[in-house]
Amino acid sequence: MLAFIIRRVVQSAIVMLVVALVAFALFRYVGDPINSMVGQETSLADREALRTRLGLNDPFVIQFGRFVGNALQGNFGISYRLQQPVMELILQRLPATLELALVSGLAAFILGVSAGVYTALNRRGVIPSAIMAASLIGVSLPTFLIGILLIWLFAVELQWLPSFGRGDTVTLPGGWVTGFLTSSGRQSLILPAITLGLFQMTLIMRLVRAEMLEVLRTDYIKFARARGLPNRTVHFGHALKNTLVPVITITGLQLGAIIAFAIITETVFQWPGVGALFINSVRAVDVPVMAAYLVLIALIFVIINLIVDLLYYAVDPRLRVERSAARH
């Protein structure tokens, strides 16, 4: 057990190091950070001096070593663009993204599971077919277009919901800025959450449907039926319970994806989260923010992955390292 945990942790550390290398190397050579830091009129000599002062002329290995050393202390430097410590910026924006991800993730989970169970139990018929078809329309439209259409319909034409931002926020003790506690904050959440959650909802719905159909044909369900248990108990007490294990696993793993997909949603809705921070930083070649963001996303994923691994191990030692194969 201990050996397994150590091996997994070491592997995760290597993964993080690789991500750090990729994050650092790529963005170090995309665009010219100096150009985004100084005005158009700054002379070439001044630019070169600034370049030297920032250490951008040092050898790659030294720059990377410095980057990792600082990153371990939570120090990703100062944003070129916003001139604040990157870590502080990300922590400021993280609540917005996490609240959005949480709401859209939860909504996607609840709606996805309900619709999945419904369509699995009612395989033929107009309504289930319509749900399946409608779910495909959701994944067949690019996210940005869905967002813009929602704004156009609900904010401009109907004027029911706000078109951008988080509305009024309240700061909780500990520094968490929440939009849940004000009505404008809750209203502002609706359109971005739909935009972000639609894809995940479809994914979960199809997964639940497929898993349910599989489980419903197992002997164990047949025995349950043979025992004369009512349909309700069979479906929800047995079939759904068995279905939910892989579904929850996948949903957990999707959390990283939701946070990252928030890039597009946050861009369209001017949602002040880390995704918008990232894309704005890409546009301005704000290297420290981009690097920190990539490392953050990877860290979230690695931690989720690690927890899932350990849980699997705890639940079923037979699975050991082979769990990847069992995940499909």
């Binding site: 813009i148 704004i151 904010a155 078109s163 369209v268």
Partner: peptide, 18 residues
């Protein structure tokens, strides 16, 4: 003062009275 980078969102904010 609110920066809104997306042109469509910016116009929408005005049209919807925000």
């Amino acid at each position: 003062y609110t920066p809104i980078a997306e042109p469509a969102t910016r116009v929408a904010a005005l049209l919807s009275g925000e």
